[in-house]
């Protein structure tokens, strides 16, 4: 990991919290808004926020295809909206996605803001404090996806090869373990 740079897609959302979390996990983190900035990184975080907003900006600014290509060789970690962008299939409503992880995701699946919550979850990385905010639910996982944590029997932390997704927000806690785990994929 030494000498490597991790980008955080900074079109919209809690990208600043991810930059802080990556740095506390020992990484050099930068904000990414352009293709040139993307290409200067060794891995990328897709933050929480509004997936529809990010998707529109990715297309308008010509980042969608470069990001898809980036994911063919470099690791991407998506949280919440970022997990929606990485999926192969998105519902409620249906929307386009990068298709880099073989998961099907339902948006805003727990309900509205009032149904947001903080829970403690056992995971492959030990017990984690999980902050769910208007969170999606991973409804299906392909054979190559490894589930690292579940909540109410739904996968909430999962990996497929170099990519990692969480439907909750590890960047909103002081615990850097999930980010540290992503950094091992660089």
């Amino acid at each position: 990991m030494a000498g490597k740079t991790v980008g955080v897609l900074a079109l919209q959302g809690d990208y600043e919290r991810h930059v802080r979390a990556l740095e506390s996990a020992g990484a050099h983190a930068v904000e990414v808004r352009t293709v040139a900035e993307l290409e200067a990184t060794d891995g990328l975080v897709l933050p929480g926020g509004e997936s529809t907003t990010m998707l529109k900006l990715l297309h308008r600014e010509g980042l969608f295809e470069p990001l898809k290509a980036f994911g063919q060789t470099k690791p991407i970690f998506g949280t919440c909206a970022g997990a929606i962008l990485l999926a192969t299939h998105v519902t409620s409503p249906e929307q386009e996605s990068l298709g880099l992880m073989d998961i099907g995701v339902q948006r805003n699946a727990y309900g509205r803001q009032l149904d947001s919550r903080v829970v403690t979850l056992p995971s492959e990385l030990g017990d984690l404090e999980a902050v769910f905010i208007r969170a999606p639910i991973i409804r299906s996982v392909g054979p190559d996806v490894k589930v690292l944590a579940t909540y109410n029997n739904d996968p909430v932390l999962a990996e497929q090869g170099r990519h990692l997704v969480a439907t909750f927000h590890p960047e909103l806690t002081a615990d850097p373990r999930v980010h540290a785990y992503f950094l091992t994929k660089l």
Binding site: A10, D14, I133
Partner: peptide, 13 residues
């Protein structure tokens, strides 16, 4: 802290 987290998601928007 949870409520503040909710607001974090709107940043940059």
């Amino acid at each position: 802290r949870l409520k503040v987290g909710l607001a974090e998601m709107l940043k940059g928007g």
